[in-house]
Write a protein that binds this DNA or RNA. Structure first.
Lengths: 200, 200
DNA sequence: AACGATACGGAACAGCGTTCCGTTTGCCAA
DNA sequence: TTGGCAAACGGAACGCTGTTCCGTATCGTT
């Protein structure tokens, strides 16, 4: 029986068993460290939790962005896939957009420091930036286009700008005086086309 | 002729001449360093520009927030004072609010890293946070109240929330794909009361 | 069992903020 | 003018970061 290649691509020659084990352990350790100390948790802390040396972290995840992406990949994918589904199920495109953004905000706001990292200009976060943008901007664009075509919103806002704005607004969620969801809802309301007045 | 007390309060016993000189030099150095490297410019860089030791910085400005506040105090004051003036001059309270927020955004967006620092939960920036909030939230509240009373906007948004949101949206201005002013304008548009429809 | 490739651990380095104290400097009184 | 002391200064030193690097250990295969 031919053994299944547990690496990502066919070309990868299959990693050593201890390496795969460490990678999994590291992901768990990082996830729990992120909950406790945010996504800026010191490298040494994560290494200690996983019971490995710092070198091992850098071998598996050369940059912090790689580690963060690996930890949150599933949730980001889920969010991306929810876009078309919402568009199909919702009564209006604007409603679908609003719901999808709520999903995104719920995700971001509960990950301590992630929204901050996402907007940071630090070179270490470039890949994080790129991944989120690549995965989510097209989905957002689809929803935005649908709503614009339906005449529900003004047509001059780019998906990039909207995602960026929403991401920014999620910074500092956790402060009881600042409800990111409320403010984001305000922004989404601002998207509406004025001339068409209220829907009901 | 009695010499003028150049200290802030009567109680202050007057500082030594070199101390006052260094403080001024330091402010200049910090201002120029902030332009070049943002408000996170390394302490040693600022010290070097001013030709003083790092200890001197900490003596005059115990925390980074103190230094930032000192550098930008004039501009923040000007912004705060512009609030009531705009309210008096503008045709509608909402217009005044929009203009005032534009002023604030122009200020924030041109100070590299300031918006980020303003929202950071780092303890070193607590005073910065406090100063901006103390000075600007009341002004914003006045404008917001006027607009709410006039029925131009929904009444359930706090000045704190709005300022925080606007501050957040200014993060990452400088990216040509992200126009903070446009997105903030969207947020301000979202404030509008729906039932009253369009003004003209 | 032996050997080569792979992966590991953690010491070592560089850059940061912050503290601390021996030294210098300005100011006032004699 | 000069003596002395409080005020202010400079920068070495410390602790905490991220990051690199290489001697050592482990895995998988022959």
């Amino acid at each position: 029986m031919p053994d299944i290649d547990s690496g990502s691509g066919r070309s990868t020659p299959r990693k050593r068993a201890d390496a795969r084990r460490n990678e999994a352990t590291l992901l768990d350790a990082a996830a729990s460290a992120f909950v406790t100390s945010g996504v800026d948790a010191p490298v040494r802390d994560i290494a200690a939790r996983a019971g490995v040396g710092v070198g091992t972290i850098y071998r598996h995840f050369p940059t912090r962005a790689d580690l963060i992406v690996a930890v949150y990949r599933h949730q980001v994918e889920a969010c991306a896939e929810a876009g078309p589904a919402l568009l199909a199920d919702s009564s209006t495109a604007h409603a679908a957009l609003a719901q999808w953004i709520d999903l995104f905000v719920d995700f971001l706001a509960t990950k301590h420091g992630l929204a901050e990292a996402l907007q940071s200009d630090d070179a270490a976060f470039e890949k994080l930036h790129a991944y989120f943008l690549d995965r989510l901007v097209p989905v957002c664009a689809q929803l935005l286009d649908a709503a614009a075509t339906a005449g529900e919103i003004r047509p001059d806002v780019t998906a990039y700008e909207l995602m960026r704005g929403v991401g920014n607004l999620c910074i500092g969620a956790g402060d009881p005086r600042y409800d990111a969801r409320r403010v984001v809802a305000l922004l989404v309301a601002g998207l509406r086309q004025r001339p068409s007045a209220e829907p009901r």
